[in-house]
């Protein structure tokens, strides 16, 4: 038999967690309130049907069932919903994000920052993480976020600009990475796919709860928790 090396790498296959919703797909503003008229379904959403680990093939539940279910719920609600108030300033936020990337004349490259983000997240915030690696990753993220402000893209056109798209995506990935790391730091236990080598046991007393994380304008994250509604299955240790 001929043995040949093959290249392998970790890839983001699925995101556990996401935009928190209730079972009707209404987005939660916080523990107690909903955002009126805002719904989420599919892989972006977190209805919390999976617990701390989504098992193989079960994302079909979100992709198929909740797409249909939430759509029907929206139809029920729509007659009682008014248009929210929207200001020109709200729209300008998005325009500004695009214009900043198009016009910024820095020295950093999107693909380099993205490579560093991917490699460091795999290394420090992958399945196995510790307080030490996560804190280190927070510092790396802060530095990458600063560098992101100094990117420059070559393509300035408004026609099929995939370079602009990649840059916008990177900005969002940098935000999202911070949620992952802060959430992992907060949870001083191991549960589902989250394995803290410094806290290898599950701790129901302190952490049988959802994490709700908020980012402020300066990119700082604050954390709240929400009670878990347990169904007919009791929480058990994973033994396989």
């Amino acid at each position: 038999m001929v043995k040949e090396p093959i290249l392998i790498s970790a890839t983001a296959h699925y995101s556990m967690g996401g935009i928190p919703t209730n079972i009707r797909g209404q987005v939660r503003k916080n523990r107690d309130e909903l955002v009126e008229g805002f719904y989420a379904a599919g892989e972006c959403a977190c209805v919390s049907v999976h617990g701390a680990n989504r098992l193989g093939a079960n994302s079909v539940l979100e992709a198929l069932f909740f797409g249909r279910h939430v759509g029907k719920e929206m139809v029920k609600d729509i007659d009682n919903l008014d248009f929210g108030e929207v200001s020109e300033a709200d729209a300008y936020n998005m325009v500004q994000e695009i214009n900043y990337i198009l016009r910024n004349n820095g020295i950093e490259s999107v693909s380099k920052i993205r490579d560093e983000l991917q490699e460091s997240m795999t290394e420090n915030a992958g399945v196995f993480r510790t307080e030490e690696t996560l804190k280190k990753q927070l510092e790396i993220l802060d530095s990458l976020r600063k560098r992101f402000k100094h990117i420059r893209i070559e393509d300035k056109s408004r026609l099929f600009n995939t370079e602009l798209q990649e840059a916008i995506e990177l900005g969002h990935m940098l935000d999202y990475a911070k949620f992952i790391v802060e959430g992992a730091l907060f949870r001083k236990e191991s549960r589902g796919s989250h394995y803290r080598e410094d806290y290898p046991k599950r701790d129901d007393e302190n952490f049988l709860k959802h994490t709700l994380a908020y980012m402020d304008k300066d990119g700082n994250i604050s954390i709240e928790t929400m009670d878990v509604t347990l169904g007919k299955f009791e929480v058990k240790e994973r033994v396989y």
Partner: peptide, 9 residues
């Protein structure tokens, strides 16, 4: 695209 010419579409 990532190493030579970011505008390649």
């Amino acid at each position: 695209k990532w190493e030579h010419s970011g505008s390649l579409s």
